[in-house]
Design a protein around this nucleic acid. Structure first.
Lengths: 201, 201
DNA sequence: GAGGCCGCATGACATCTGTCATGCGGGCCC
DNA sequence: GGGCCCGCATGACAGATGTCATGCGGCCTC
């Protein structure tokens, strides 16, 4: 019997998922949570085999919860179920040790099958998202460029970025210029947008 | 008997919703759709009483479908069910003639009740979202400022905005400057972000 | 130690952007 | 019509930004 923790802030969906998974003979939902913090508490209390986490939740998001779980409840395998995600989220999730990444377009039957796969040590990634991630490829940005571009992502002026990164404004401009060139963007704002879309931030 | 069209690209959720709503005696799901285009086709074919639309779908989104339905199937009342929406989406939805706007955090029982309310000519808006929308208040931006700010929203340089709006670059700068000042933003990029968050674009 | 590479910094310069003062024309009231 | 206000547009100017060439110092390899 696979013991499941279900975390999703949408009652409607969480309830439906619980009901549908309960139909499977070898799966038991032992805990439910409506936020990231609740999910962590539940996981510590019930120590489930698999945590099915929504990506977007109040408090820590699914990826953050997965990362935390790897530390505190290592025997629990994390997987993400999400509504509308891009290659970026997938990349971050895999880096956090998530073993499954599925959009909510799958059927309940498929989800159950994926839970079994993950429980047995396998991995599952939605093929469409995987294709996106592969198409986007590895980031052409180096560490500094990535750091500065993410600081620039909310539209802050260069002076503020320089202060926050403890660098000279000129240096910041250089790195941002290099990043924009690599991404084929005409300025740092579109560069930040592009990088975000591709999961490079 | 209230005849329902259910449109949501997430199989998992659409299936669950259909099952849960079928438990209600006075509600019948007569059609399902997985995209905006499909929703329109289904609505024309089945002419349901109420269309329950997901906000984010492939093709036309929920609001666009609602607007189109008002033209082509006027007897069909539209309502939006969404995962994570802000005041902006709510504002646009109401402008498109949507009669109900609910987050997916509601229970199935509540949803059924809201469908009945809407069917009888009432309206329903999630109170949390309504509070957000009221707190954001009316947009301080005039028509021109709004138009130019939305053109600026993707980080395009002023020259391109000017071309697309058929205005001189100087004029564009003035309007964007005015908009940024009104929003307390330090440049047009953060101004665009703020305006988007508040539903003013 | 010489040479070369790399990360960071600086300065010069062109261009872009934000701010301000001003100009033009239509609608409105008297 | 004359005077006025208001929305829209334009241009000038300063400061911010993007681009390029260059310099400095640490690190590696030979």
């Amino acid at each position: 019997m696979i013991r499941i923790l279900l975390a999703d802030d949408e009652h409607l969906i969480r309830g439906a998922l619980a009901a549908l998974l309960a139909l499977e003979d070898d799966i038991a939902v032992v805990a439910e949570a409506g936020s990231g913090d609740e999910a962590l508490a539940m996981a510590r209390a019930h120590r489930p085999d698999v945590a099915v986490l929504d990506l977007r939740m109040p408090g820590p998001d699914g990826v953050a919860v997965a990362a935390e779980l790897r530390e505190t409840v290592p025997e629990c395998t994390a997987m993400i179920v999400t509504s509308h995600a891009g290659a970026g989220a997938l990349r971050q999730a895999l880096a956090a040790g998530v073993r499954g990444f599925v959009p909510k377009t799958v059927s309940a039957r498929q989800l159950a099958e994926i839970i079994r796969t993950v429980r047995e040590g396998g991995r599952y990634v939605d093929s469409e998202l995987a294709a996106d991630a592969i198409a986007a490829g590895a980031s052409p940005l180096n560490a500094r460029e990535t750091e500065l571009l993410s600081l620039a992502a909310d539209g802050a002026p260069v002076a503020e970025i320089a202060t926050r990164a403890a660098l000279s404004p000129g240096t910041v401009r250089n790195y941002l210029s290099a990043a924009a060139t690599k991404l084929g963007a005409e300025n740092r704002h579109v560069a930040a947008r592009v990088a975000r879309e591709r999961g490079w931030l």
